[in-house]
Simulated scan of single mutants.
Amino acid sequence: MISVFGSANMDLVAYVSEAPRRGETVTGREFRTVPGGKGANQAIAAARAGAQVAFLGAVGDDAFGAEIRDTLAAAGVDVKLLRQAPGMSGIAHIVVDDAGGNSIIVVPGANGTIGGPTGDERAVIAASQALLLQLELPMEAVIAAARAAREAAVPVILTPAPAQPLPGALLDAVTLLLPNEHEAAGITGAATPEAALDALLERVDEAVITLGSQGALYGSGSGERIRVPAVKVKAVDTTAAGDTFAGAFAVARAEGREAEDALRFASAAAALSVRCEGASTSMPTRAEIDASLS
């Protein structure tokens, strides 16, 4: 089982030819509401990639919260411990342009009410093969969840997004750090992904830097370095690519796959996700990932 302690949002997605500049108004061609949030996205990605998944987070007592809960459950994610907080669910305002790029504004809502994991949530984390974390919850809650996993000898995979300073108390409990190339550069100040990887490995045991169309780069403290190319596809919407990669990578590692095999599995999943619009709606099934690899 994989546990995900993270955010759940309703994505409010506007599709435009070109994203507006500051002070500019543009006409969109389509608008959708899609359940998302980095935590919920990673949970759905992992479930579709073949894992048993428990999601630990919070939604509001509004209509969006009910829809998010139903979407997670429909994807096969265990939501028995999903909290309900008074007020609004988390919201993400997303603009997607015709090149597949996006810009996002997140309003935390119920996500901001979460403290550390409860006793029941700690039991689920301790029974997991991996814990997936992101940074859309309060930092103290993320640190507490990471420590709970570390104490139970459960590997912790952290996606350090949205980008922000990473406290030593968090990094001390992280097994594998999974930033994209921009986040890695921001964390380390390094000019190249390779240099950023070396810097990250001074702080954690393993790291993967996703490089978009250039693939992904893996390293471990033992000196192992692996780079795999991206699967070439026409990108329609890259909103959930990173979360799909994280969920699929966690599944592959939980199944005992070596780093290179896990990277290829996750890269295939991420490539499949960018061919469709939306976040949780675009994530591939295990059968689709296996077919792509074969």
Rank of each mutant, 00 (worst) to 15 (best):
A240H: 10
V95G: 01
D97V: 06
E136A: 14
V233E: 10
V107K: 09
G215N: 12
D70T: 12
Q84M: 09
L72K: 01
V154T: 09
E258G: 14
R286H: 07
Q52C: 05
A66K: 11
A196G: 05
P138L: 14
E67F: 12
A199M: 10
A259H: 04
L131S: 01
R264Y: 02
M88R: 13
P20D: 08
A163D: 11
S267P: 04
C276W: 14
L272R: 05
I114A: 03
P138S: 14
A216S: 13
R225A: 10
A207W: 00
V274A: 04
D11G: 15
P167Y: 09
G39T: 07
R147A: 13
G57K: 06
V13Y: 03
V59W: 05
A269P: 03
P155S: 07
R29C: 06
K80P: 02
A195H: 14
G50V: 03
A287C: 08
A266L: 02
A43E: 00
V26T: 03
L132V: 09
A141H: 03
V231L: 12
G247T: 05
A63V: 14
A110K: 02
I91E: 08
A49G: 07
H182M: 10
D61N: 14
D62E: 11
I104E: 09
P179M: 04
A14M: 07
R83Y: 09
T238R: 15
R286F: 01
T188Y: 06
V77R: 00
G247W: 01
A46I: 07
L200Q: 01
A66N: 13
R275I: 14
L132W: 00
I94V: 15
G101A: 13
T239M: 02
G50H: 02
G39M: 06
V228I: 15
P86M: 02
D78K: 00
A287S: 14
P20A: 13
N41H: 10
A252N: 04
L72R: 02
K234N: 15
A184G: 02
A73N: 02
K232Y: 01
H93D: 07
A161W: 12
G65S: 14
P35S: 07
G189P: 13
S128L: 06
S128R: 00
F5A: 06
G36P: 13
V16A: 06
G115D: 09
V34D: 05
S128G: 07
A146N: 01
A161N: 14
L137Y: 12
R225Q: 10
V13W: 02
D120C: 02
A148K: 00
A279Q: 14
A279P: 11
G76H: 08
T210V: 12
S128A: 13
V228T: 15
S292N: 01
T71L: 05
Q214S: 15
A19Q: 13
V77N: 00
V95L: 03
A152K: 04
Q214N: 15
G215T: 09
E258T: 07
V77T: 05
A230N: 08
E151H: 12
A254E: 11
G116A: 10
A196S: 13
K38N: 14
A110D: 07
K234G: 15
G39L: 04
G256C: 03
A250M: 02
